[in-house]
Nucleic acid binder design. Sequence first.
DNA 1: CTCCTTGCAAACTATTTGCAATCTG
DNA 2: CAGATTGCAAATAGTTTGCAAGGAG
Lengths: 138, 138
Amino acid sequence: MQNNRRFHRSPQREAIYDYVAARKSHLSAEEIYAALRLRHPRLSMGTVYRNLHILVAQGRLVALRFGSGQDLYDARLDLHAHLLCRGCGDLLDADIPAMPDLDQWAGKRILDFQVDGYSLVFSGLCKSCRKRQAAAPS
Amino acid sequence: MQNNRRFHRSPQREAIYDYVAARKSHLSAEEIYAALRLRHPRLSMGTVYRNLHILVAQGRLVALRFGSGQDLYDARLDLHAHLLCRGCGDLLDADIPAMPDLDQWAGKRILDFQVDGYSLVFSGLCKSCRKRQAAAPS
DNA sequence: CTCCTTGCAAACTATTTGCAATCTG
DNA sequence: CAGATTGCAAATAGTTTGCAAGGAG
């Protein structure tokens, strides 16, 4: 995808963006495809993936790549931490207070590496996985 | 993989562990396979993957899942931050000082989620990608 | 002996790409 | 129109799994 292209509008792309923006959280290409297929029966996975890349390139969506095998897309653009459950693989938003320790690095260099952001994922167990583990200890 | 099994020793598994431990950083299954194939010509990818899972389960290796498509394996067990280059996808260790802001959350709960660790990845541009970008601005 | 591990090949999951037809600016 | 976008299908990358044979405890 060359970065000097002029994007045309397309109903599919807007539908994808609108759907993610409405859900405001962590959707996989598969989920988006399944949901939009109800209204756009001829939509294809190729189109979903291509548009997700474009939306990320345009800065309208953010891609989250950790945890399970699939990439997740988020319309929430502010930098925020996530909670990843080791039990069920669920990914939640963590609205924790700002962390000066972390933010001090923005714009600085570490080992000749120009830092411009970070991704912070807490791992642990969600409520239901904690219960399940308490019930059936290994 | 049931968690109550008694592991047998195998030359393949030890070779995989030794190789990752010697390189001390971020190896993909593919790289490990390619390297060990020179000495173990009959080694298969299936064996590499199965053993990487076992080594992680045994706590001898850590799996890093972010950035590019492939999982990377690390024999360095202490919790440390990483640097991910947006340009070339390279992943480096970041030996930055402890961060009380972050460590305060260990053992605590956020939204009924029991935190027991975190993964911190700084993103940015490495030295050579910075050069390339300066040479050919978009 | 029992259960673990291996190599091989086939299966799978997530994602990407080539192409001709169609739409946008 | 030029160039972007689509649906479809085929291709790819990374990883997982079934199975029969061999190995460890």
